[in-house]
């Protein structure tokens, strides 16, 4: 099972600023080690949901950096709203994490 994501969602006005840090090797399929080429292994799809409603549906390639960062903004959010993030990689592994929107400073 994949490692958990770090998600932070803070409210700024009526928009939630969501910052997501995923843990994933994001192998390009071209990196070589002493035991040969490391096979392609990367996150293909990321879905961000706000209270169960999809607000962002992303498709990625192997060109996204290792341990990917994603920043998005969700309009019409309130403190306590649920933001959930799901990623799926090219090996079928997936991970979902959820966080509540907190009040901004």
């Amino acid at each position: 099972m994949a490692d958990p994501m770090k998600i932070r969602a803070t409210l700024q006005g009526d928009t939630a600023d969501v910052r997501i840090l995923m843990r994933h090797p994001m192998e390009t399929g071209t990196r070589k080690t002493s035991s040969g080429v490391v096979p392609l292994h990367f996150i293909q799809s990321v879905v961000v949901q706000h209270n169960g409603k999809t607000v962002l549906d992303a498709q990625w390639s192997q060109a996204i950096s290792q341990n990917p960062f994603l920043g998005v903004r969700v309009k019409g959010a309130k403190v306590g709203d649920k933001i959930s993030v799901t990623w799926t990689d090219n090996k079928g592994d997936k991970r979902t994490d959820e966080v509540a929107v907190s009040a901004g400073s």
Binding site: V48, H50, L70
Partner: peptide, 29 residues
């Protein structure tokens, strides 16, 4: 799109109603 990458398209984000037209990430070049 990173134009000189072996596969130029890095990511494609579909924005649904409720999402702001802003994305931020880190790519390899």
């Amino acid at each position: 799109i990173a134009e000189n990458n072996p596969f130029p398209l890095a990511a494609s984000f579909d924005i649904m109603p409720g999402g702001d037209s802003y994305v931020s990430t880190r790519i390899k070049m």
